[in-house]
Design a protein around this nucleic acid. Structure first.
Lengths: 218, 218, 218, 218
DNA sequence: AATGAATGAGCATTCATTCAT
DNA sequence: AATGAATGAATGCTCATTCAT
């Protein structure tokens, strides 16, 4: 494969990466297409060869990063074999490690900001990301209840209660990149642990005696 | 007082209200100053009679809707006399009722989106909103520990764990206005209750036996 | 006459003075009507009570300062009784002292800059200022020739040769007010003397011998 | 070289020409950037591809038309070999032919009008135009004195006395383009000759007979 | 007569998008 | 495929002018 071909094949991805970074850093409106092209090492015109408009570029950015990171990283979780408390703790950590560390936080923030202007995108996001994520959490909670590890609970509101802090942390992390003042004063990974700890207390059966064993495993 | 004067006195507020609504609905960049003026029932020029630039308008919007709502609505909480668990539950509800129902969610979203482009604004927000809010939560947690109601805990990360879901819900609520797809499938008020329930389990001392009393007040 | 009346009577002049100062200092386009009003101690609206537009204000400014200063100050000159050389030297000094020291330089600059945009004004200026001034110089030159003091000469081009440096100095002086860099490095009054000296040499008959009398009057 | 490239290479000059013509004709403030672009045969946006702002455009206009014309056209003069009187007469004619016929008059008028609003520009002009021009005249006067052709004289004020009429004529010429009323009633070239004639009488040693020695004692 | 709040046409500037090369 | 010069619609902001009080 000649170099030219290799370059060409890589172009769309390079453009998406550049766009993701800039959209997340400066917001959609404040990012100029020329900047995106420049960062991807091509000219302005080339960008339009691959994506017909700035809005379409945003759609592609979201579409790609959505399916890839979230769904895939969560998949592993389902093959888990330990206690449901452990599983849930793992999920929270995974979420942070994958969604948080990578671009997903920026995507969330983008969606939060731009969804109103791109309803079509919002629907896509809802179907491709929100729904799958909710299903995943639902599976975990139901597994916990089925195995008698979790108390009976209102599932949907619990899902929301679990996702909310994680989504916020993940957004905050990416805001902090371009605006340190708004970052968390404590390490977000610690906050994730704290959320897990607090939530699990409420989720788990009081357990005969001091079930703290699985609540705070060394 | 002549009608002219009455109009003039009301103008700044009318403009702020219009700006708040539009900034929150469409984002800062996507809102045209002319729209703001139109919505306030004045002409483009009049807007500039009161606020020297679009950015200053944003600052004024934030300054007004922030310090007021948060600080004041939280104030009530401090005079509370019941158990710390009840106090915390009250705070969560208050936050939702005040910050959530009103404009604050939109402001949060705005800050999340625009902070990177307006560092000065971000600092202002951090000092005027984030810090006070954190102090308030800190006071509650310390009250709970001092009275032996809450277990010892890492305070700062707990604050973050409590604020995160609330901030997300509040942002989500306002996103949902312009984009129903991204709204919560369950009533956010219920999610607040669920967060309270789950968190309190983790915060409170196991309590002799059935501490369920304050966990699920009829 | 009540105070109110007195104020009212003085208004037009106060406005003209303020306008002259600002037009001359900043140029016509760069001067805002509000500034003029403010400087005159009235409100913006009041200005329009007296002058229907900014352009009309400029016309009034020019019209007033034109007739007043130039014509009148030159008038004195005609009653002069000494030698024509002395008369011409006096005229140059008068011009500088009156036109130069006062506002006339600014008016010249204004006309030079704005004439193209206000042809009507230019005609007025030509008729009211340029023509009379030229007539005055013509009278002096002809007096000098008639009395045998000046050599025969092409009158019109001599007039232009005399007026040109004076007009430039007078404009320069007013430019220097707002822009010291463009001022003359030597005292303009000295330059006027030097112009007089040089020109008179060319104007006067070689005069057998003692023409020095009127060239350097004690 | 492809046509596109040829166009691009020519653009800056085309834009400067258009800007010069319009600024000179209508003044800086009264000229719209769109007009400049239109006159250069491009769109509004293209102008900003080459010059980042209207003010920068003005700077470029001045920078280009100034140093070039003045310095270069005057250069020829220095290689002159005849009498100093002839040299001075030549300079005056050159000035008129070059500075006068070309754009310089308009630039002078522009500077006179706008200098106050662009101090930085004024300094540039002073250093690049005024100073060099003065140096040139100084060189001529000193040559004349050194060769015994000119009488001893106060050099600086003489320079000013020589430049003043020339600058005025040159400005007037360009005013006349857009406003014939203010033009000179006699051909400016004739006025230049007359200025030369008058001034030279004052500059040159009386030569032949009449003992001027006592007329201007050192 | 005087005010100053309100207006809106006008203009500099930006930037997504196009297209000749 | 790739470029980057060119475009022009869009928008923030200004300021001469109006008019209700």
């Amino acid at each position: 494969m000649p170099a030219r071909q290799r370059r060409k094949a890589a172009r769309p991805q390079e453009l998406l990466d550049a766009a993701l970074a800039l959209f997340v850093e400066k917001g959609f409106a404040a990012t100029r297409t020329e900047e995106v092209a420049e960062r991807a090492g091509v000219s302005k015109g080339t960008l339009y060869l691959y994506y017909p408009s700035k809005e379409d570029l945003l759609k592609a950015v979201i579409a790609q990063n959505i399916s890839r990171e979230i769904a895939e990283s969560m998949d592993r979780v389902l093959r888990f074999e330990g206690s449901s408390a452990e599983l849930l703790r793992l999920m929270l950590r995974e979420w942070w490690a994958n969604a948080g560390e990578a671009s997903c936080g920026g995507i969330c923030r983008l969606m939060m900001s731009e969804a109103g202007n791109f309803p079509e995108l919002a629907s896509f996001y809802e179907a491709e990301v929100i729904q799958p994520a909710r299903s995943l959490w639902r599976a975990v909670l139901e597994r916990g209840m089925a195995r008698g590890e979790f108390r009976p609970m209102p599932v949907e509101s619990t899902i929301a209660a679990l996702m909310a802090p994680m989504l916020f942390l993940v957004m905050q992390r990416h805001t902090a990149t371009s605006c340190p003042q708004l970052g968390s004063p404590v390490d977000p990974a610690e906050v994730v642990e704290r959320v897990a700890e607090l939530m699990l207390d409420g989720l788990c059966r009081p357990a005969a005696a001091p079930s703290d064993a699985d609540r705070r495993p060394a």
